[in-house]
Design a protein around this nucleic acid. Structure first.
Lengths: 158, 158
DNA sequence: AAAAATACGTCAATAAAGCTGACATATTTT
DNA sequence: AAAATATGTCAGCTTTATTGACGTATTTTT
């Protein structure tokens, strides 16, 4: 039995060397994505704070503006969240007058979602700083470069 | 006074046209970033679920592995969260044996953070599917394209 | 040496955003 | 008539974050 200190547990081996593994794993892009996304969502977050809304409201108002007439089921599929998570956020947006529901003309079970003018204005105000940030990131980039970035982002999806 | 229905409020003007504004705002990239990031974090999320950890644990374990010896203050600065938000997550990682604290050798107020071997293993396991996804997204891309994407992501940061 | 600043930990209370599971209603499809 | 669908709702829960206050140890400044 080796000589022990009074500690109850053996001293664990701590690793002092940074995790870097000869290019097997692309830590650089992983971190770039983290920081880019963190700052990308920080712009609208500040605007949303003023209305008492959060990121969930942002996403709902964005997609309803992009595709007016989409149903609740469409939204659930797009956001990949549960019905119950969406319900509260959607209700708040409807109550606040940013989104309206219309019974589906063909299928009356459906509730089609449309933005009001206030909802459109909000979506644009939220997108504006993000778009500015994107333009800044593309400063001086060629059309080919822009296409490459788009292809990369599409390739990142499931 | 115009003739009114029995409704209490005037019918709001609903917008049926998709939000598309002649290239003033880059909705395409905004959405690509949203979907790319959503799927990018879904890989580690599945692994973390098994240990009862969440995204916050992932970020902490990642950065401590990337920069062993970083302090609590360093971590707060990197993650841009509050001390109290970090506290619980960090405590769980320490209690679970993934991270250890060492009193700073020069400044004894500091607690330097190091991964254990288990912590290193966890960080690698979490990074692996993300790295694979990145490789897939870059499939067939030139080095110049990879550099363009990195430049774009760097430009997206504050 | 005393005062101020720093690094960290902790407590209490709160909020946003998500989850599961169950159930109800209206409507459409089979 | 029965089954499936679209939606809404209820109750309870978890994770991740917040603010504000306070305490301790340590270092820096005065």
């Amino acid at each position: 039995m080796p000589r022990q200190t009074s500690q109850k547990v053996a001293k664990p081996e701590l690793l002092a060397t940074p995790m870097e593994n000869a290019g097997i794993i692309d830590f650089e892009i992983i971190e770039l994505l983290f920081f880019a996304y963190r700052d990308f969502v920080s712009d609208p977050d500040q605007i949303l704070d003023k209305s008492g809304f959060g990121r969930a409201h942002h996403r709902v108002v964005h997609f309803v503006n992009r595709e007016p007439g989409m149903t609740v089921a469409d939204l659930l599929e797009t956001l990949k969240i549960t019905k119950q998570s969406l319900a509260r956020v959607l209700k708040q947006l409807i109550d606040s007058g940013y989104i309206h529901q219309v019974t589906g003309p063909e299928d009356r079970r459906q509730r089609k979602l449309y933005p009001t003018q206030a909802g459109r204005d909000l979506a644009l105000a939220l997108a504006e700083p993000q778009s500015r940030r994107i333009e800044r990131a593309f400063e001086g980039a060629s059309d080919a470069t822009r296409e490459s970035v788009k292809r990369f982002l599409r390739g990142m999806q499931d």
